[in-house]
Amino acid sequence: MLNIIVCIKQVPMVSELPWNSKTGTLKRELAEGMMDPASRRALEAALQIKENLDANICAVTMGPAMAEEILHQAKALGADEGVLLTDRRMAGADTFLTSHILSRFIQREYNSFDLVICGSQTSDSETAQVGPQLAEDLGIPAIGYINKISVKENTVEVQRHVDDFFETLSMDLPGLVTIDLSAYKPRYLALEGVEKAFENPDIRIIDAEKLGFNDDFNALKDSPTRIIDVFSPTTQNENRVLKGAVKKLVDQLFDEYGKVISSGMGKDLKTHEHDEV
């Protein structure tokens, strides 16, 4: 049986963030959580592998207690297990520490793993660093940004299109892949999946102590990077603001900026609707 671990993350719904531009603060606690879109693709890749061979899918996430929601979602979609790594002392971990915590879990609790699948980058921080760093921490090979994976016994073959190169690569398991944002379009939740999740609603919850971290462990403090300032992007362009009915706005746009637009297009434009040349 192929043991697959899928690393997923709960992220705020970015476009809906309650963000105060005056104070430059983000009301994170008000932001509704969802499963990160790249994580959903990672899970989808695992589910498709499981369609063709005997596999066990363990979905793991690190986050606050509320992140348990996405594990239920993952199980409803077809994951066999859900594991939540949660502890106040894990908060504030940078990618170095996050990957180390995930690695600890995998090594201590799941030593017989074959394949780790991550999304290429989460929608909230987009570093794309946790996957490669997790592989390094586990001492296994990794291939990023893949579009296609096939598992043959103890090896995987993958395809990807990176930096304008279309590549086919293979590696022996255990190994890690990250799924490109263009691949493995996630499925919708099927009703039978929801029922299955209810039959087996258990989520394992694991804290820092269970992972063998000592009393001094503090992810925020132990992370090599430190955030020293956070600010809102400011823009103070002297600009022209046009308001009114759409028809009038479009006319005004061409009246005032027709030359700029026409030169950008490389085409002549009639300066006025009715003029004849």
């Binding site: 970015v14 430059g24 983000l26 987009e126 992007p233």
Partner: peptide
Amino acid sequence: PSFGGNLIAKIITPVQ
């Protein structure tokens, strides 16, 4: 960029 692109963060690696 940080926090979903709504903010910009200044980050240092003070020790390592």
